[in-house]
Design a protein around this nucleic acid. Structure first.
Lengths: 347, 347
DNA sequence: TATCAGCACTCTATCCTATAGAGTGCCAGC
DNA sequence: GCTGGCACTCTATAGGATAGAGTGCTGATA
């Protein structure tokens, strides 16, 4: 790669045409085809010169001597960042989103629907992370005695989701004691994010052990157990993975297995998606940019979604690098916004 | 297919050898190989005669003239039902099961572990259905007011699993009323299976509308809502699907996509597994026997598992028809028993 | 009558070669 | 700086030859 070339208007226009053409039909693009595609009246020979320059700059490459050129990751990156003309969202698709992406009693249902719509519309794989518990705020907490030292803790969060967990306490509590503990916690902590609650709880335990009365101490200690993040309960809902089996660039079984393994391990995918939590809007990983070998032939288009203006999760589309970015990007963007809206509690 | 042939001892012995050989190395088995494999001192020519008979009977077939023979579904069926010599369980595998398949607070964790062990050990796909709510018995029910007419119902079942659901009630209840309703239900119905509870509840509503006091009626009506089976919450945990990508008989992308689609739709797979709920022990579907096109190249080896001697779910292994049944069958069998043990409440 | 050696036949898989087609790089002329 | 022309390269495809595996059948044998 050699950067003392100039990327003038014409080269960019040709790069754009090449990427668009390649995305459209998946074949390496030759100079003759490009000459016909653009309104610049240039002969194939001239275009070949420009293409040689683009290749020097590492933006395109040729699979072999007598094939045309295909975009490299840098080529796609430049295309997406500077050349792409995003298409407005299809009104049918918007209608579909508005019709189906609505509030439900069960958050998982909404997440599942979002994931499915993403995959159905794009005909690629859709992924939506569950709202991060950490970031979601506590609405209500409750303790139920199960047996001896086992206590069921139930907490209702911001987005009307109910979580439960079984605690093993060091001593036995009466139902009344548990009720009292819950009352205390609700009065003090309701409305804070779970992360904030945990932080406050830890502080309280550290600062005020002696001054606290017995009941409050019990309550706080139980809250500590209840909010223990434990083995990251982070998860996502994936849909339409099988759509990826149709793409020729992913038809190598080794690769495909690696990709699907990554999907079921979840760890790597979650890590990748987490990187998009703080992005302003749509963020894109092209091929090897993700840093995961399994995703080398794939691109990931993501957008964070929010509840009450607080980002709590990420959704996105996974497909071959050769995808219709100009349609996928706005679609992912809007879906994220509408998912946030559907998850916002109405009260 | 023509059945006026006689299946004598020798033919069966040869069929057995052929299936075993084919399972071992996946190549069509020729007369010469079979002649060496068996201790019957028969020349390839004689064996060819027998093979022609077996082919007439529809037990084996030849992919083309100059290939050997492979078993048909009927051939596999006969092999499994009458010829198979099941191997005792490997002690390492038993140790693995005993070590990992132990009681946990969370049923889903245990199910997940079982599924993973099934796939890891067999290097095929493992599947375990969640315990059917219907069949599991009620231990404890609780109502929590959420807001206005929304009530959170929580029920703890037999296997220590906690389920929750949001009800929309027609009128508003005070916490005390909800507590009273729960008390009533717990005193009357605890210990029955959810299906039995629902049945009793419906009967009560029908019979005794007038005689009942107001509170009990409310309680029963709420129970009815809570136990509504709704969109079948039946589900399963699948592991190691990607193992199936390694098998040459499943390497056709069309087929593979169909199979994975079936996995994510779940409906068909659940229906198939449900058929095994009432089987006495291990049940096997070979290829097209399942009745699902997606599974045409696959076999499914299943066994039901029980909690408190009540069958509540099914587990199994999915792999190519050409699998080591003599090892898989006992393994699935034992795993089902140990899963049942791990799910049994200790009290 | 059951078994078996021998043989002609069939089908597949593999390798080699030839050929057409697509696309390039470079050069010389405008 | 652009372009037509041309030699060159590489791929994909088809055809043909060959080796190998395995079969079915026949006629001989015990």
């Amino acid at each position: 790669m050699n950067n003392n070339q100039v990327l003038n208007e014409r080269s960019l226009q040709l790069l754009k045409a090449l990427v668009e053409r390649y995305i459209q039909d998946g074949q390496p693009v030759g100079s003759r085809a490009l000459s016909k595609d653009t309104e610049l009246k240039l002969s194939p020979a001239t275009i070949r010169n420009v293409m040689a320059d683009l290749e020097d700059m590492g933006l395109i490459r040729s699979p072999h001597t007598s094939a045309g050129r295909v975009p490299t990751v840098s080529g796609y990156r430049l295309f997406i960042d500077s050349l792409l003309t995003v298409k407005p969202l299809d009104s049918e698709e918007l209608k579909l989103l508005r019709k189906n992406l609505i509030a439900k009693d069960n958050v998982n249902d909404v997440i599942g629907i979002a994931s499915r719509i993403l995959s159905d519309v794009t005909r690629m794989a859709g992924v939506v992370t569950l709202p991060k518990r950490e970031l979601v705020s506590l609405r209500h907490i409750e303790f139920l005695p199960l047996s001896n030292t086992r206590v069921l803790v139930i907490f209702v969060t911001n987005e009307q989701e109910v979580h439960n967990k079984i605690l093993h306490t060091s001593k036995q509590f009466s139902p009344a004691q548990l009720q009292q503990a819950a009352n205390y916690l609700n009065s003090v902590y309701a409305g804070l994010s779970l992360a904030a609650v945990r932080k406050a709880v830890l502080k309280e335990l550290k600062d005020a052990q002696e001054q606290m009365n017995r009941e409050m101490l019990d309550a706080v200690q139980m809250a500590k157990l209840a909010l223990d993040p434990e083995n990251s309960d982070e998860d996502y809902v994936l849909s339409g993975e099988t759509n990826l089996m149709g793409f020729s660039e992913l038809s190598d079984m080794e690769r495909l297995k690696e990709l699907f393994d990554a999907f079921s391990q979840k760890r790597g995918v979650i890590h990748l998606l987490d990187q998009c939590l703080n992005a302003e809007g749509v963020q894109i990983f092209i091929g090897e940019e993700s840093g995961y070998h399994a995703f080398e032939q794939c691109s990931l288009v993501t957008a964070p979604y929010s509840i009450n203006e607080q980002v709590v999760g990420v959704l996105g589309v996974i497909g071959p690098t050769r995808m219709a970015y100009e349609k996928v990007i706005p679609f992912v963007d809007v879906t994220a916004k509408l998912l946030g809206a559907a998850l916002n509690p109405k009260t």
